[in-house]
């Protein structure tokens, strides 16, 4: 009888353990309800940005902060949402994690990478003043990025279209190498986005990437 009680207790203890203790990265956090954690997951399950290359794309420090104090990066919602074009974004807020869970999740996300993506492609030194002006013209005028993405205007305010994710804080959020890969070969990451494909020469690609990295406006929610 005592032995049976012991087994029951042991089984109960095991069942009550948080799933994450034994789990694959991020499992049990519910991320997969909206994000695809694997390229093999059906595209129909994509309700939020894919995360199976989060380690290539996102900066870990930003992830830790975002997961504790989520902010809206896509004011019109995710581009696959039914209300996207109608301007009726899904109003469900992103779950909030504790600091501990946020750090754990950021570690797990940082490990999610596509195999063989080259790194070290970008000179991350800030642009000179003149270089920044030239690149701003590329961003806002020559390549029309501002039509769908927020940038930062001369008054330091986030301004621009909302169908794409805000880039006002892109320098804190995105990795330079990923920006290059995305601009050059978006098909590596998505079958079909709503963004135009551009065949950029290397110099333009580098200028645009460095400009996007220079956009470092913290969300208002984080600066209060």
């Amino acid at each position: 009888m005592k032995r049976l009680g012991f087994y029951l207790l042991a089984v109960g203890w095991l069942v009550c353990q948080p799933a994450a203790s034994f789990a694959l990265p991020l499992e049990g956090m519910g991320c997969e309800a909206c994000h695809r954690l694997s390229a093999e997951a059906p595209p129909g399950e994509r309700k939020a940005p894919d995360l199976y290359y989060a380690g290539d794309k996102l900066r870990k420090e930003w992830l830790v902060q975002f997961l504790q104090r989520p902010v809206v990066l896509r004011k019109a919602g995710f581009f696959t949402a039914p209300g996207f074009l109608a301007g009726e974004p899904d109003a469900r807020p992103h779950p909030v994690l504790s600091e501990e869970d946020a750090k754990k999740a950021a570690d797990d996300l940082a490990a999610l990478k596509l195999p063989g993506l080259p790194t070290g492609l970008v000179d991350e030194e800030p642009l000179s003043k003149v270089g920044r002006v030239k690149a701003k013209i590329l961003f806002e005028r020559d390549y029309s990025c501002i039509a769908c993405h927020e940038g930062i205007n001369l008054a330091g305010q986030a301004r621009g279209g909302v169908s794409g994710p805000s880039l006002a804080g892109a320098g804190n959020r995105l990795k330079g190498d990923w920006i290059v890969h995305w601009l050059k070969t978006p098909e590596k990451f998505i079958d079909k986005s709503r963004m135009p494909v551009y065949r950029l020469d290397e110099e333009t690609l580098a200028q645009l990437t460095r400009y996007i990295l220079s956009l470092k406006k913290e969300p208002d929610e984080w600066t209060r």
Binding site: L85, G161, S163, R194
Partner: peptide, 15 residues
């Protein structure tokens, strides 16, 4: 196109 030009083309897309 509808992102900017609107679902019915009336120039009232989300951007």
């Amino acid at each position: 196109c509808a992102q900017c030009h609107g679902v019915k083309g009336k120039g009232n897309g989300i951007n």
